[in-house]
Write a protein that binds this DNA or RNA. Structure first.
Length: 462
RNA sequence: GGCCCCAUCGUCUAGCGGUUAGGAUCCAUGGUUUUCAUCCAUGUUACCGGAGUUCGAGUCUCCGUGGGGUCACCA
């Protein structure tokens, strides 16, 4: 059984990078019929916040990523960590170190001055004397001092670290007794039965330390998949400054969960030439062995395209419902099908659709001067009046094609091209160029409003 | 600086010793259209450099170069 997890620290909002590793972990568990757990790493009481934890949960809810079981909070697991610290102490695999912060700092400076790596020197490793007074000790684990630690990584392959290069007896419990990160992750992952760890490759260099903990405690080492970073356009690690990285901001900007997830799953992962993945397909096809080795650059061009794609393929009822969270209520409009069909193929985001729709529904109050002058010629008034006259005589005008026929009558009768009536009519109806077909616009706003807008426009002089 | 990772179109990527180096996006052009968009077609653009292995290297090895990550009593 595949058991994965997502383990954010609630020190900020969930961003794109975190979401992607969460998605990968989720997909891999689902594909295998396994479990996907959530663990909140809130041991840093100074920095974490409940709002941030809630924001992560909100984002999961919006995107439809559901986790299994109860959410674990590290802050509630102190007893467990204490038990293992005691165990290591009893077994002689860890020890108390009475070195003060100041002494440690001095040691570091000396090492740096001698161009050596800053590293704890192990002075209390085999200490048997009397403890100095007035110092609350930290607990350090006895790490191997020689030999190799191999991280078997499903993305990058086997990575060999030399113990002497990277390991010292690192702290597993602070002077106040609280356990440190590398210690608790290993314990939590082991106890929660996590056997496939998918996480950012910024954790790669932590992994040997965690392996030391796994081995000291006799836990089974899971499979690791270290996913490359997502970089900003400068090639640096993504940060808050690179635009709206809070996942919920994508909702505000009008992106759909489908598009965002599809975008992210293809950032660093691929399945041949396929670009469009439904949630079902992702769950079916995702495999961490196909994750790329190299970092990718975050760029919204493809996200916009995907979002447009998903909007086009969203049923109108659903679309109308989604648009309500952007302040547009269409439920009562009898021509909403026609309207949405026309608008959804020219929108990149849900948010974009709102002004596009409003511009059709609301009577124009001003006219684009340049376009007006270009469209209105000497014979324009005659043409529009002819069209107006024909409209008034029709009783049954409902569909775009009904209006289209009337336009055709005019151009046939007057022997003119479509542009002759289309351009000025467009100005009259919408105030400017661009937008859906005029027949669609008229069908949506209805005959009376159409007549009114024509009158408004033919009455003005620029 | 030590250690570690990475390197194909601007961007996301396919490739897994023999391909005219493929797809997508973006951009440009053309077609469709009353406008805009969609859609369709076409086009420009890439194997970081150097050695080696091999009949043959984007693909394997090494060395450069470049980029990134990490080195806490943070997570």
């Amino acid at each position: 059984m595949v058991v994965t997890r997502f383990a954010p620290s609630p020190t900020g909002y969930l961003h794109i990078g975190g979401l992607r590793t969460a998605l990968f972990s989720y997909l891999w568990a689902r594909k295998n019929g396994g479990k996907f757990f959530l663990r909140i790493e809130d041991t840093d009481k100074a920095r974490n916040s409940e709002e941030a934890a809630q924001a992560i949960l909100d984002a999961f809810a919006w995107l439809g990523l559901e986790h299994d079981g109860e959410i674990e909070y590290q802050s509630k697991r102190d007893d467990i960590y204490a038990k293992y610290i005691k165990q290591l102490l009893d077994e002689g695999k860890a020890y108390k170190c009475y070195m003060s912060k100041e002494e440690l700092e001095t040691l570091r400076e000396t090492q740096m001055a001698n161009k050596q790596r800053a590293m704890y020197d192990g002075r209390y490793r085999d200490f048997t004397g009397t403890a100095p007074e007035g110092v609350s000790p930290v607990i350090r684990i006895k790490a191997p001092q020689s030999g190799e630690i191999v991280v078997r990584d499903g993305v990058k392959g086997d990575i060999v670290f030399k113990a002497e290069d990277i390991l010292d007896d690192f702290i597993i419990a602070r002077a106040d007794g609280s356990p440190t990160y590398n210690f608790v992750v290993a314990i939590d992952d082991a106890l929660m039965g996590i056997n496939q760890v998918i996480r950012g490759d910024d954790h790669l260099s932590n992994t040997p330390k965690q392996i030391v903990v796994y081995e000291a405690l006799g836990f089974e080492i899971p499979s690791f998949y270290h996913v490359p970073m997502i970089h900003n356009s400068e090639g640096k690690k993504l940060s808050k400054r690179d635009g709206a990285t809070d996942v919920m901001a994508y909702k505000e900007m009008g992106y759909t969960p489908e598009a965002l997830l599809n975008f992210l799953v293809r950032l660093g992962w691929s399945h041949g030439d396929q670009e469009i993945f439904s949630m079902d397909e992702m769950r079916e096809l995702f495999n961490p062995k196909d994750i790329n080795k190299s970092a990718s650059i975050y760029n919204t061009e493809k996200l916009d395209w995907l979002n447009g794609h998903y909007i086009k393929n969203t049923p109108n009822d659903k679309l109308a419902e989604l648009l309500e969270s952007y302040g547009l209520v269409l439920s009562s409009h009898d021509k909403k099908e026609i309207l949405l069909d026309a608008i959804k193929e020219r929108a990149k985001t849900l948010k974009d659709m709102v002004p596009m729709i409003q511009e059709i529904l609301e009577t124009p109050t001003s006219y684009d001067e340049k376009a007006y002058k270009k469209a209105y010629k000497d014979d324009t008034k005659t043409i529009l009046e002819n069209f107006r006259e024909k409209l008034t005589l029709k009783d049954e005008l409902h569909l775009p094609s009904d209006y289209h026929h009337v336009m055709e009558e005019v151009i046939n009768e007057m022997e003119i091209g479509f542009g002759k009536i289309g351009q000025p009519l467009r100005i009259a109806l919408l105030g400017k160029m661009g937008g859906p077909g005029l027949d669609v616009v008229m069908a949506v706003i209805g005959k009376d409003e159409t007549l009114k807008r024509i009158d408004n426009a033919t009455g003005i002089e620029l």
